[in-house]
Simulated assay, not measured.
Amino acid sequence: MSRFADQTVLVTGGSGGQGASHVRALHAEGANVVIGGIDADRGAGLAAELGHRALSVRLDVTREESWAAAVAETEEAFGALTILVNNAGVQNPPAVIESTDLATWARILDVNLTGTFLGIRAAAPALRRAGGGTIVNIGSTTGLGGTALYAPYVAGKWAVRGLTRTAALELGRDNIRVNAIHPGVVATPFITEPAAGSDAPIADFYSPEPFAVPRLGQPADITALLLFLTSPDAAFITGTEYVIDGGLLLGPALKNGSPS
């Protein structure tokens, strides 16, 4: 299939677990892909693996000038930017609010919230130049409820929801759609390996046993939804939030299935 022929997508955090999944799938369906991230070597490796129609750019999502350079490189290489996936994110080491230092708070919000804000701001003019496009912000189910020990991360993801809706209202008349995806617990290094400054991965705090679908999510699960939201099939969808969590937020499932 080539649903994304003649489309150019910039994915932040594009060489990580979920990001690389998104990049590979979009490329397979015909898109030009731009892999944005701090780790230029890892991004370059993925671009080399994909070959034609793939570009790696160094992108620090917290810096305006880095965003400007990434958008300029994208347009220089492929002529237009039509899709932005704000996927980059970092996690705080688990700590109660009283033990969370201000530097940690500021760093998490800087990447997860300000980075998304700067991405929308930098991409909007390019999307207008292209005649329209779409932005997808990757949030989290933590943005729909409280999660002990992760206050900075939770606060940032809650704020991304309001940012998504506001951007959808502001950009809709420019033929730019803006939506959010809120993954649950997904089996990537982000979840299965300890965050910086922590001894335990997030996965240690969760068991999928109570979920309606009793397993951790896989990057491909999130990618499938992303492909829909960025495709022409979703042309009438904007300002929405999609939860994909295997039923995590529904509450505990029946332990042994349906009663007889």
Rank of each mutant, 00 (worst) to 15 (best):
M1F: 13
F4N: 03
A5T: 11
A5H: 03
T8V: 03
L10R: 00
L10Y: 00
T12L: 06
G14M: 08
S15Y: 05
G16L: 14
Q18E: 10
S21L: 02
H22F: 13
H22L: 08
R24P: 04
H27D: 06
A28I: 02
E29C: 07
A31P: 07
A31R: 08
G36I: 13
G36K: 11
I38P: 04
D39Q: 13
A40Y: 10
R42M: 10
A44E: 15
E49G: 09
E49P: 13
H52S: 12
R53L: 05
L59S: 09
T62V: 14
R63N: 11
W67K: 10
A70D: 09
E73F: 01
T74S: 02
E75S: 05
E76M: 14
E76G: 12
A77P: 08
A77R: 15
L81P: 15
L81I: 14
V85G: 12
N87R: 11
A88D: 11
N92T: 09
A95R: 14
E98T: 15
D101E: 13
W105E: 12
W105C: 12
A106N: 15
L109Q: 10
N112I: 05
N112V: 01
L113K: 07
G115W: 01
F117P: 01
F117V: 09
I120A: 11
R121M: 04
R121G: 07
A122E: 12
A123T: 04
P125S: 00
A126M: 03
R129P: 10
G132H: 13
T134M: 04
V136Y: 05
I138F: 10
G139F: 00
T141N: 02
T141R: 02
T141F: 04
G143M: 00
L144I: 05
G145M: 12
T147A: 13
T147H: 11
V154F: 07
W158V: 08
A159M: 00
V160T: 10
G162Y: 00
L163I: 14
T164I: 02
R165N: 12
T166Q: 15
A167E: 03
A168D: 06
L169G: 13
L169I: 04
E170N: 05
G172T: 11
R173Y: 10
R173D: 15
D174E: 14
I176N: 00
V178A: 00
P183K: 09
G184F: 01
V186E: 01
T188H: 06
I191L: 14
E193D: 14
A195E: 04
D199L: 12
A200M: 13
A200C: 01
P201G: 03
A203W: 11
A203G: 12
F205M: 13
F205V: 04
Y206E: 07
Y206Q: 02
S207V: 01
P210T: 00
F211T: 03
F211Q: 06
P214N: 09
P214C: 05
P214L: 06
P219K: 00
A220N: 09
I222P: 09
L225S: 10
L229N: 08
A234F: 07
F236G: 01
T238A: 07
G239K: 03
T240K: 11
T240P: 01
T240Q: 15
E241K: 09
D245M: 09
G246D: 06
G251F: 08
P252F: 06
A253Y: 00
K255G: 05
N256R: 05
G257S: 01
S260D: 15
